[in-house]
Amino acid sequence: MALLASTKTNRPTAETLWIGIGIVVAYGVVPLAGSDYLLDAVLTPFLVLALAAVGLNVLTGYAGQVSLGSAAFLAVGAYAAYNLHLRVPGLPLLVDVVLAGGIAAAIGIVFGLPSLRLRGFYLAVSTLAAQFFVQWALTKFGWFSNDNPSGVIDAPVLRIGSVSFATAAERYVFSLTIVVVLTLLTLRLLRSQSGRNFIAVRDHEIAAKVIGVPLLRTKLLAFGISSFLIGVAGVLWAFAYLRTVEPAGFNLDRSFQILFIIIIGGLASLRGSFIGAAFIVVFPLLLSRIGAAVLGRVFDSGVLEMSQHIVIGALIIVFLIAEPRGLIALWDRAWSALRPARRPAIPT
């Protein structure tokens, strides 16, 4: 909290208050009150996807570099942490996590190098190379998965010192802590000169260059930070959420899913990443309940998956057309409508 309090911003302290309340509820109430199903199947994946979305948002929402290869960095994080744990015994878990993020960042920077010359979807296409290459390498080389024939890895029990995080609630708390800390650090980065450089490069690259923003360093920083965050999300995905993963789980659809989270939630908004992740996690559950209730047996898993595709795809289009700033903009509007007295007068 000291970190946040010392940020010099002109945002109202109400925001800090809300974050504080959120943290208290997330730590104090949820782990006690939530069922294992809620924690395991809803909240933990929500947190992990939100962190991945925060990572992609740094790159795409703030720095304006579109990536279709997020899942590759999830995979790198997961497999790096697995191998570090396996091959460097005695390394504390948190060091594992940070190193795994670092490895993802390094690979992200390598695949970010073309961004100096490529823009828009040329760059997007080049990030697909990361997607396919990483997935292939993890399947092909048995070393990564300790010679499991299909590349499957089983996560170890999370343990920091003598404290282990084994139950659903414990794994949730573990994920929550990492996600909150990293999100707050990201927030600070975005409000620093480096964060402004991201937006400058996104909004007008040439002007940024003329002003003296170091383009290559700024873009690579965005790729590095983004891949770091996504890599750590990958560790959580493998260690805290699924606990058994295979390369096929980090396919292009996963990359798209993360991209969709930030489009639906809100580009260039960290809160949007969380709302978007919540939506992506909750929506299929809702859809299957509603579908089953309305259509009964016809609504099998195949139909569910297809209708999910249709609705998500349609939502992407609708948001891009009607509210490019995503759910978070709707949220803010609803919020200020609820308490019109507090709405600031529009300056001239």
Binding site: Q193, R196, N197, I199, A200, R202, D203, H204, A207, A208, I211, G212, V213, A268
Partner: peptide
């Protein structure tokens, strides 16, 4: 200009 930054931030960008 950098549309997504405030006026103050835009101006401060001149010192990036």
């Amino acid at each position: 200009l950098f549309k997504g930054l405030s006026v103050l931030d835009n101006v401060q960008m001149g010192l990036a």
